[in-house]
Design a protein around this nucleic acid. Structure first.
Lengths: 111, 111
DNA sequence: CGTTTTACCTAAGACTCCAATGTATTGAAC
DNA sequence: GTTCAATACATTGGAGTCTTAGGTAAAACG
């Protein structure tokens, strides 16, 4: 489990990248995917996930598709064209930030 | 210049590491050091720096030394023993977070 | 002598995320 | 067949971090 502070600013990037890779996903699916990809180290709470999804939708980066699964309605999120063109930018921003951080901290990445 | 959101949670780590490397520094010196190490990409504002320094001091990670430079008082910050033992932990937390992020984003570090 | 740089600081607000809570369906265990 | 865990959506209040904007003043530079 990570210091929650570090997550700030990365949640949108995570969501957008997952949707770019997987086409469309619903909220709960995103939480499970993040959990498995991170080996349980990163757990998205609903209190952060849903407001972020709604915000990205309001900004026009995501659109939604409601699908009835029996009596339950599942809400899929998918990238809009705008959202799609934003993903790589977000990834680049993240990588550039990491690079800068390594410079400032004067450490070398252990890869 | 980076998306300011990404910086969140990293400011303490930056300050502690700089002090670990440089012994003691004063506020303004820290802003200049960060600016030069990051090639101007990371600029600490005073509104975030000073409250963070004061908080770290209140938590017992930093202590201060006031030095008169003529009529001006310069306030040096240095690591306490507790602060010193915290630095490597913060760095490790940061590195672990980056590693997790690369897994979740399913990208490889470009180093 | 005026402007830039140095040097400290605070306060109001925005923004992001978390914890807690609420609702309801589905599937597995017993 | 009922209870519990997992699935699935969501909101609200609050904590924490940073930014914007402001305030004060000395030293250096032109």
């Amino acid at each position: 489990m990570h210091s929650p502070e570090l997550l700030k600013g990365t949640l949108q990037t995570i969501i957008l990248k997952l949707l770019a890779d997987n086409g469309k996903m619903y909220g709960y699916e995103i939480t499970q995917k993040v959990k498995s990809l991170s080996d349980g180290k990163l757990v998205l709470t609903e209190g952060s996930l849903y407001p972020t999804l709604h915000k990205l939708e309001a900004e026009g980066l995501l659109s939604t598709e409601k699908v009835s699964m029996g009596k339950r309605i599942r809400k899929y999120y998918l990238l809009t064209p705008v959202g799609n063109s934003t993903v790589s930018q977000k990834i680049e921003d993240f990588e550039a930030f990491i690079s800068t951080m390594f410079n400032v901290l004067q450490i070398k990445p252990a890869y």
